[in-house]
Write a protein that binds this DNA or RNA. Structure first.
Lengths: 234, 234
DNA sequence: AATAGAACATGACAATTATCATCTTAATAA
DNA sequence: TTATTAAGATGATAATTGTCATGTTCTATT
């Protein structure tokens, strides 16, 4: 009994509960959630689930940053989406009743909770707002994916890099030293914009020389946001 | 009363009702649907809705073929998705409560029905299976979009053309003369695979010389499906 | 501190793809 | 039917991007 109360209060105050579809859950449902969830810690580089795996539930990202990606035949890892604290992972596969289409790995140490599918289905059936929230979340992903698809074709690698840097800045913010908070390797960054690692490095180097960014070791500081925006949009 | 019966039977037997999320509707709901829908005919080249428009409902594609696309700054039209008879259009914008992100135009003469948002919301609230169906349909779109995004980066234009031809063949079938049923201009085909029209034409010409396809006027006949598959996957 | 391995960086070059120009053929309107 | 325009086709060329090779700088581990 005491246990339940603690678990509930934990889920109740959790950032995922505040930001994701789960915000529609009522107190009673949150208690059920707290009792059925499992927590995990995932270290940088480790996988949460791999392409083809049957996940049978969703993962809540409590802390850290993850990437959803797909390995190509030539060994390159195309990153489809980054997820941060407050977001859900694996919704699509669960809803479609399919094995995961993408691999989820930690880009920075993560804390996640697993909610079994049966629980989610119960929420679907009993809570209309929850269904609607989740539907909207998938719709949001769809819109983003479509727009990125278009950008991938209509913009040059240079434009996409500028765009991605701005996006990372917007979404994840900056450290105290003004550099981007998400620390991706050049290879990962290349995997987001869809280019060769060397091309990515070269362009970063160009941006640096042009004063658009500053390279502080492996970290990246945006120096001229306005110019980056202009470059991305042009 | 007689009117209602006719309308109902029309919606009841409609292909959209059989293939889309609407299949979850019961008789009573189909009657309501039939009373609230409006039918349109759209000629090849005309728009159903344009990017930025508030649609306030979904369109059912009864007949014909449509394209969802976005115009780029340099005047090129990137095609995101083709829709055919039996599918719904504009679900995402409606669910997200946003203006259309893409423009929908007829590639071949179309017949569509418009279902107002209020009606869909009613179905959402009263029919759980309908919600689930629609969610799965959006999920399906998301998966496809993500996979296409990956293909766009990881495959060459040649591979993407082969893949797209096979896809068009699978999805739309062939005419009596064995050519592809969807008749797209070279420009539209280029807009799907995300390349310049000239590049698309050149590759079609190459495929023709290699015996992979045959160009019958403006129409395309697949001659060596196996080789096309190999090319697309390689 | 020494060493190994990963990540980063850059040059040289090749391959892919876009752009511009021109021409032919097909479709459409006067 | 003829004129006009759109669609298709192809060459020449330039720009973009990828690949391979090589070197440097980090980082972690012993």
């Amino acid at each position: 009994m005491h246990q339940t109360t603690i678990a509930m209060s934990k889920c109740d105050q959790c950032i995922v509960r505040q930001l994701s579809s789960l915000k529609a859950l009522n107190k009673e449902e949150v208690i059920k959630l707290a009792n059925s969830k499992t927590s995990y810690k995932i270290k940088k580089g480790e996988a949460i689930f791999e392409e083809g795996e049957i996940t049978n539930g969703v993962f809540c990202v409590k802390d850290g940053i993850g990437k959803l990606s797909k390995l190509s035949a030539n060994g390159k890892d195309q990153i489809v989406k980054l997820v941060k604290s407050g977001e859900l992972l694996g919704q699509r596969s669960m809803i479609s009743n399919e094995p995961a289409n993408l691999t989820a790995k930690a880009v920075a140490d993560m804390e996640v909770c697993f909610i079994p599918k049966s629980e989610i289905i119960n929420f679907f059936n009993s809570n209309n707002q929850f269904s609607l929230n989740m539907m909207q979340s998938v719709c949001e992903d769809l819109k983003e994916s479509e727009n990125e698809k278009i950008a991938l074709v209509q913009k040059t690698v240079k434009q996409r890099l500028a765009e991605t840097l701005l996006h990372l800045h917007d979404e994840f913010g900056e450290d105290t030293d003004k550099t981007l908070k998400v620390q991706l390797t050049r290879e990962e960054l290349a995997g987001i914009i869809g280019t060769a690692t060397e091309s990515c490095i070269r362009l970063l180097s160009d941006f640096n020389k042009l004063g658009l960014i500053e390279l502080v070791g492996k970290k990246i500081m945006l120096k001229d946001v306005r110019a980056l925006k202009k470059l991305a949009d042009n």
